[in-house]
Design a binder for these strands. Structure first.
Lengths: 189, 189
DNA sequence: GTCTATAGCTCGATAGAC
DNA sequence: GTCTATCGAGCTATAGAC
């Protein structure tokens, strides 16, 4: 891995662990093994480096979701697979956590990829639910858009509750609760 | 409002807006109008002041929830009233947002009130759902504990999505999606 | 109780040698 | 490309006068 790549990876880790306000250029340098001059040669500064890191994390999050959504099985099975996918619940969502960072949200360049990622995710999931409704797999009364938003919110809130409790199990409970609620809208074949 | 109280209120605001790592004693002093010496006379330092602020915010959050839970109406009505209660969605949850703060979670004294608050909230809501099930208002298939966790997660995640989208409306959509899912488990009278 | 002064450190960035 | 030196500002806290 070259220096530029190591800088991006270290920044991704630090943004995940400490957020933007809690992350210093010095910490990035120490973790990546790059020197001061090296960092400022490859990137204009902290915001520039953070943007590269955020773009990378957002792209990865999107790719993983798409993999689950395009998997095999019924709509409900694919949604369940996405929700139950293995996650490091105690670390939180590397993208979602940045919405709590004042300096990230104050910078339109940094907040835009976050906004796009969640807009895409919610829309994609809503499309999947709409398809399940058309196929007769899901109740006609189920609203795809609000339901999709609620499901994504369960994941993001699950991280919050897991961290609050200091237990990844709480995340799993939130997911099972959501799937239990969803089960009431699945039509029996 | 005396100086000590102004310090606590200013700290609550800053923790809400910027989190613990993003909040400096200097900012607290400027917002509260208290001087350096004054702040360190009333509190031992930043962690001590933050603890007082967190305790206050957690207590308020608990009181508001309890008010909704003990209101009039069926269980579903009270749960809906709690979920739909007016909130400043774009500001996020003053307690939940602290779970993303590395320095808060690294300090057991600061994280304990957060853990207690969410444990209480989830348990209280689970008890309400259990009662609704006993009363025949809710489906017997609904698990109170996981459902309660999912509902609290929808709120916490709703804040995340609202901030990501820059729109309080997204929070409302998450709530309506959750209530729509819950509706499938309400027994018709 | 509140003030000012000061400490020692880190922040985010720039400069210029190699 | 990477290094070291340096900058001005802000950080969290302590000291001691009033």
């Amino acid at each position: 891995m070259d220096t530029r790549e190591r800088l991006i990876q270290s920044t991704r880790e630090l943004l995940w662990e400490r957020g933007y306000v809690g992350m210093s250029p010095k910490a990035i340098q120490e973790r990546s093994g790059a020197g001061q001059g090296s960092m400022y040669h490859h990137f204009r500064g902290k915001p520039d480096l953070a943007l590269a890191a955020i773009d990378r994390s957002a792209g990865e999050m999107r790719d993983r979701a798409e993999t689950a959504f395009t998997g095999s099985g019924t709509v409900i099975e694919r949604v369940a697979a996405y929700l139950r996918r293995e996650r490091d619940a105690l670390k939180g969502c590397p993208v979602g956590r940045l919405t709590q960072d004042p300096d990230v949200m104050a910078d339109p360049g940094l907040s835009a990829p976050i906004e796009r990622t969640f807009a895409w995710l919610t829309d994609r999931l809503a499309g999947l639910l709409a398809q399940g409704r058309e196929d007769g797999e899901l109740d006609a009364s189920l609203d795809p858009a609000t339901t999709a938003t609620a499901l994504v919110a369960v994941l993001q809130g699950g991280y919050v509750l897991a961290r609050a409790a200091g237990s990844a199990e709480v995340y799993a409970q939130a997911v099972e609760g959501a799937l239990g609620l969803l089960a009431g809208h699945v039509r029996q074949p």
